[in-house]
Design a protein around this nucleic acid. Sequence first.
DNA 1: TTGGTTTTGTAACAATTGATACATTTTCAG
DNA 2: CTGAAAATGTATCAATTGTTACAAAACCAA
Lengths: 225, 225
Amino acid sequence: MIHYKLLERCPLFKGISEDEAQKLLALIHFQVKNYEKNEIVAIAGETVKNLYIILSGSVKGEMIDYSGKTIKIEDVEAPRPIASAFLFGKENHFPVTVTANNEVKILSIPVSEFLKLLQKNMQILKNYLNIISSRSQFLSQKLHFLSFKTIRGKMAHFLLQHAGDKLHSVELKSSQQQMAELFGVTRPSLARVLGEMQREKLISIEKRTVTLLDKQKLNEILQHG
Amino acid sequence: MIHYKLLERCPLFKGISEDEAQKLLALIHFQVKNYEKNEIVAIAGETVKNLYIILSGSVKGEMIDYSGKTIKIEDVEAPRPIASAFLFGKENHFPVTVTANNEVKILSIPVSEFLKLLQKNMQILKNYLNIISSRSQFLSQKLHFLSFKTIRGKMAHFLLQHAGDKLHSVELKSSQQQMAELFGVTRPSLARVLGEMQREKLISIEKRTVTLLDKQKLNEILQHG
DNA sequence: TTGGTTTTGTAACAATTGATACATTTTCAG
DNA sequence: CTGAAAATGTATCAATTGTTACAAAACCAA
């Protein structure tokens, strides 16, 4: 049986009551599959033909490189969906091999049935569109950020974005170490750039508050990449 | 009036006949707006409340930096949609300011009406899901590619991906210059890496055919970033 | 084939970042 | 307040890439 209450916590069923969820699922075909620990749920490269939602337990996604070694990518726990971004589109196959971390119960809805669900319920349609659109927007922003090749460029972009049009100071919410990871660089390299920018009077740092002294010049940095 | 035949060439209406399109649009509310040359269609930051499909003419997207300068991003021509990836999701506002390049006719469908359309017609629903999913997958691949920090890593990934599991040679379809742009590096730097990899007997290059001599070692390069 | 254009290979030097190490400052629990 | 832990500033050297320049090779139209 399905714990319909659990589905409320799944982003796809946000705003759908327990009763509603039960009624909606009664209208379509689906399966609930059980997997034992270490059992393989899906193999990388396989076509994604179903929407998978984890009802209990957790799974891990692993990539297999060309030589056969496996590298763990991420864990997914109930009540999250697996590979929901690969249900449609040109590359609709699993990017990773999915394996059960423990005893797992998975709700499996065929694509054709899921499409029916989307047409029957406006809220689920909205939810799904919001989920995959948000993912796309997140990736787009990430990509834009990475398009700045130098640490200076990334930092200028970061500061200007967080300050917005009006403010002239930014409160850093994370340590240099965390910031360095976000930027994908080493901590001393980040500190060096911050030091240089202070010496050039572009910014000034007091504790964790960064004041933007010359927005004009910070903008020029963006242009150069 | 709308040239419904034009819509067939729009990815969103793929597989929808002229008649069908006309009948479907008759079921919902929409507007056809005309813009003169240089007229502003949408301002960056504005919430996207409609699906816009260009019926004739073309528009350009421009970003405005923090100092007020404008930078042209891309042109969109009939019968393409504008900002269709920003209709839903958390960041549902225009990433760029959109201006008419010439006399432009635009089909404007409110989000709520577009949702109805998606629920009424399975083909359009599939088309839209495929479009935004493909975009997401494209961005994801791009991001994965950029996650390799060295040119060596990018090149190893590129060659192994294009060769697949079975082949041991890759036919390059573009010049070093084009490849360098794809990698986001300079041409001499790319050539240098190719030279090094040849000297190390990892690959051999004959005209535009790259033979992978040591897939094992190429894989090891991926692990190190 | 010829002659010009494009593509490729390579070199020397500058700029940027990574890796590592260490001193200093800040933070925070006791 | 005090002392240990965490965070930060800085230095040095190695690795990687960019920049610029030039010659050799490949390509292609006349």
